[in-house]
């Protein structure tokens, strides 16, 4: 285990964007590792380059400086073993729930197999979408739509799941519920997850580890394990230790912002 390369490794990462308004430094000297099957929450204020980090892992963006490796190999192009869940569900409005989940397979290979369909059915059951298979996205609530987004990301069975503030567009109650849902899903099927959020309680409840970034340019402010017991559920949210940890994170964030 110790000899295995980390699932994701960031080394001396820097990112500078040339924009019309001049140079914007999004990330500076960011280094940390994510172990296989670890759930890491990346916490930071808006504009600290959190999404940039994810897009580098996905191979959609080359870092200006430093290196991103996945399972020991530098990322040079988009990879098959990475799934993405976006901030907005961004489903295909003309496709049913089932077809949206099958979209990555159909898009990559041109057609879907019986096996793909079976896997989609399994994911539909796992994400609580039974009975909605043939519905169109706009017939679903925001929470349901994001369930489809998660199922779509899981359909190709990626080793690494990148989640870019996936619940930030949802109302508070649905957001919490989706968090527990996600915990339940990953309890059953472990994945390496990079989860971007700016909610401290979400980070505390979901993650094995929290990485805190500072505001622009994003630098590593803290990197700490979450020692709350698993499995986590609604009880976790009301535990004193959870509040204490979330409070600690919040103070870290606020101090850095000030």
């Amino acid at each position: 285990m110790a000899l295995d390369p980390p699932a994701v490794s960031f080394r001396g990462l820097g990112q500078v964007f040339e924009t019309r308004g001049g140079r914007v430094e999004a990330l500076r000297e960011v280094s940390f590792d994510v172990a296989r099957h670890e759930f890491v929450a990346i916490l930071g204020p808006s504009g600290c380059g959190k999404s940039t980090l994810l897009r580098m892992v996905a191979g959609l963006l080359k870092p200006t400086r430093g290196r991103v490796s996945v399972f020991g190999l530098p990322v040079t192009e988009p990879r098959d073993d990475v799934g993405i869940v976006f901030q907005k569900p961004t489903l295909l409005p003309w496709a049913s729930v089932e077809d949206n989940i099958l979209f990555p397979a159909r898009h990559k290979r041109g057609s879907v197999t019986q096996q793909d369909r079976a896997r989609a059915a399994e994911l539909i059951a796992m994400t609580g979408l039974q009975g909605f298979e043939k519905r169109l996205p706009d017939e679903l609530s925001g929470g349901m739509q994001q369930r489809v987004g998660i199922a779509r990301a899981l359909h190709m069975d990626p080793d690494i799941l990148l989640m870019d503030e996936p619940f930030s567009a949802l109302d508070a109650l649905t957001r919490e519920e989706m968090g527990f849902e996600l915990s339940r899903i990953f309890e059953a099927r472990r994945k390496t997850v990079l989860f971007i959020t700016h909610s401290v309680s979400e980070a505390a409840i979901l993650a094995d580890r929290v990485v805190v970034l500072t505001g622009r340019p994003g630098t590593l402010a803290a990197d700490m394990p979450v020692s709350l017991p698993r499995p986590r559920g609604i009880e976790t949210a009301s535990m004193g230790a959870t509040h204490e940890f979330a409070g600690h994170l919040r103070s870290l964030l606020l101090r850095r912002a000030a």
């Binding site: 897009r55 996905a58 191979g59 959609l60 192009e77 988009p78 990879r79 098959d80 990475v82 993405i84 976006f86 907005k88 961004t90 295909l92 990555p104 898009h107 990559k108 190709m156």
Partner: peptide
């Protein structure tokens, strides 16, 4: 088109 879907397409190397 939503840029996310284009990124999804690129990440799938379709």
């Amino acid at each position: 088109t939503p840029p996310e879907l284009i990124e999804l397409s690129k990440s799938l190397r379709a």
